[in-house]
């Protein structure tokens, strides 16, 4: 246990780093992914084809390869973001690929008749999006969004490979200092599981709110 006590401040700092990196990446990739999904719906092939290729590439590559590209290849091309910046960029690119797919499916699930109805009622595009599409898409997208995001927390452990001192990196350093790898790794896993659980609770709260607001409880 001594090693945990001795390393506690570093674990705390690492946990905080993991949380804010994850929060930033999730917010960025959700907003950009959703925007690209809407854009590809609205603008047609000019956006949807490049988006499909982008999403196929970044969903097909191992996270580690994407991170290495951001950390090693970008500086060689003249853009040095440092470990944390590279990790944020890499995970955001991957996140956008998944989020765009999730939101595309969500938009596709909106009944086309609703669009006809809003046009017949004279609602403009913005109003339709905000009052008709958004409340429905949030509900259909939420489970997939939460599942991806909660799973994505765990992927952040890979950032330790590009010198980001997040939880897994501190774990590795602590293993090197002590001979208690089992305990240390379980503590690290517990931290990731806790962050993921917070997200799951958040999902329940949000889904409850949106279920109440629109009346129907499906």
């Amino acid at each position: 246990m001594d090693v945990i006590v001795a390393q506690f401040p570093r674990f705390l700092a690492a946990t905080w780093l993991t949380i804010w990196m994850f929060a930033l990446v999730t917010v960025l990739s959700t907003i950009i992914g959703a925007a690209l999904a809407i854009l590809s719906e609205a603008a047609g092939k000019a956006v949807s084809v490049p988006l499909a290729i982008f999403s196929w590439v970044f969903r097909g590559l191992p996270e580690l390869v994407v991170l290495l590209a951001c950390y090693l290849a970008l500086p060689a091309a003249g853009l040095d973001l440092g470990p944390v910046g590279s990790a944020i960029l890499g995970f955001t690119l991957i996140g956008i690929a998944y989020q765009a797919e999730i939101f595309r499916a969500g938009l596709a699930s909106v009944d086309p008749k609703l669009f006809e109805a809003t046009r017949a009622l004279g609602m403009n595009w913005r109003l339709t999006m905000r009052r008709i599409v958004f409340p429905q898409v949030v509900r259909t997208v939420l489970p997939a969004w939460a599942t991806f995001s909660a799973g994505n927390v765990k992927a952040f452990a890979v950032a330790s490979a590009i010198a980001v001192t997040e939880v897994m990196a501190v774990t590795r350093q602590s293993i090197a200092m002590s001979n208690q790898p089992f305990l240390l790794i379980l503590v690290a896993a517990g931290i990731y599981a806790a962050i993921a659980s917070i997200l799951m609770v958040l999902e329940v709260l949000v889904s409850r709110r949106f279920a109440g607001q629109t009346g129907a409880n499906s």
Binding site: M168, F182, I185, A193
Partner: peptide
């Protein structure tokens, strides 16, 4: 499912020798 895959790999590589 709660543990990062990397944690399981480390457990197998660094952790099991403890046992």
């Amino acid at each position: 499912r709660a543990m990062p895959t990397l944690a399981l790999l480390f457990l197998a590589y660094y952790g099991l020798p403890e046992l």
